[in-house]
Design a protein around this nucleic acid. Structure first.
Length: 268
DNA sequence: TTCCAGGCGTATC
DNA sequence: GATACGCATGGA
């Protein structure tokens, strides 16, 4: 477990291969905002956090010590991303992506929050996804569990302005609460079975399922393909991913996704 | 005005 | 099983 010190209510730790801006702004989480050059404010579930970075040194502001394991898990502090990047860098395109997106970590997000968030993400753009999620959290005082959303209907959620996605959210909540979708069973199932379970929800297809498995269940072999990753695959990997991605296709995807969106693979 | 956004459901073949 | 199209909303 990563060591830390405390200083007047703040928690301080060091971590290599961790860049807040890259990690929190690469499309895996939608509840963080940069408040200055090195500080982010955000939330997970009902927990709020302000975190700043100075090189490899990080400060969690006004954070109870007993919450540190939660945040250490969320930011995946005990995984060696230096080694992961070394493995992926056997491939030339991935090496460039890893260099450009250095410090990206795969967040360990809560399954329900991830599933609902990526239902909202479909055929949508990131600023608007963030807005819809912010309004949802505004209604419930934090990101709600399916149980807390029990009884919600179209009118409850109309302030979200989520469009056609509203009925998908309601179907998801209903299936979780009724037990038709068992997220514990999803976490135990093999990848394809887990995806099939998630896809029983209206509005959850293969892309949302894979994002949920990657970001919400830390299934690093899940490989979501959206419009951006279609371009990456067509241009660089028409015959499939290189073997160095075996088992960590999703992490490779995250570096590639960030790099292609930022235009960093143009001359690759 | 038209197109697009971390897609998916449905109809049609 | 493959492909075409509609879908709510809002920014470019």
């Amino acid at each position: 477990m990563t060591k830390y010190t405390t200083d007047s209510g703040n928690i301080i730790f060091t971590c290599p291969d961790f860049d807040l801006a890259h990690t929190l702004d690469c499309g895996q989480a939608f509840r963080w905002e940069q408040t200055d050059g090195h500080t982010f404010r955000g939330a997970v579930g009902r927990k709020k956090l302000t975190i700043s970075q100075d090189g490899d040194r990080f400060t969690l502001y006004d954070t109870p010590e007993e919450d540190f394991p939660f945040w250490a898990g969320y930011f995946d502090l005990d995984t060696d991303y230096g080694r992961i990047k070394q493995t992926l860098s056997e491939d030339a395109v991935l090496r460039r992506a890893c260099e450009y997106g250095h410090g990206i970590r795969l967040l360990r997000q809560p399954p329900e929050e991830t599933l609902l968030s990526f239902i909202i993400s479909q055929n949508n753009n990131i600023p608007r996804i963030k807005g819809i999620i912010e309004r949802l959290c505004g209604i419930y005082g934090g990101f709600p569990t399916a149980r807390e959303m029990e009884g919600a209907d179209e009118s409850t959620l109309s302030p979200l302005r989520a469009g056609f996605r509203t009925r998908y959210l309601l179907d998801c909540v209903h299936r979780i609460n009724s037990g038709e979708l068992d997220l514990d069973a999803v976490s135990r199932a093999d990848l394809d079975t887990a995806a099939d379970m998630l896809m029983t929800v209206k509005g959850v297809g293969i892309k949302v399922a894979m994002c949920t498995l990657l970001f919400g269940f830390h299934r690093t072999e899940a490989y979501p393909v959206d419009v951006w990753m279609k371009r990456v695959n067509a241009r660089f990997y028409p015959d499939g991913l290189p073997s160095c991605t075996k088992g960590i296709e999703g992490i490779a995807q995250q570096y590639l996704f960030y790099a292609i969106r930022e235009g960093a693979l143009e001359q690759a």
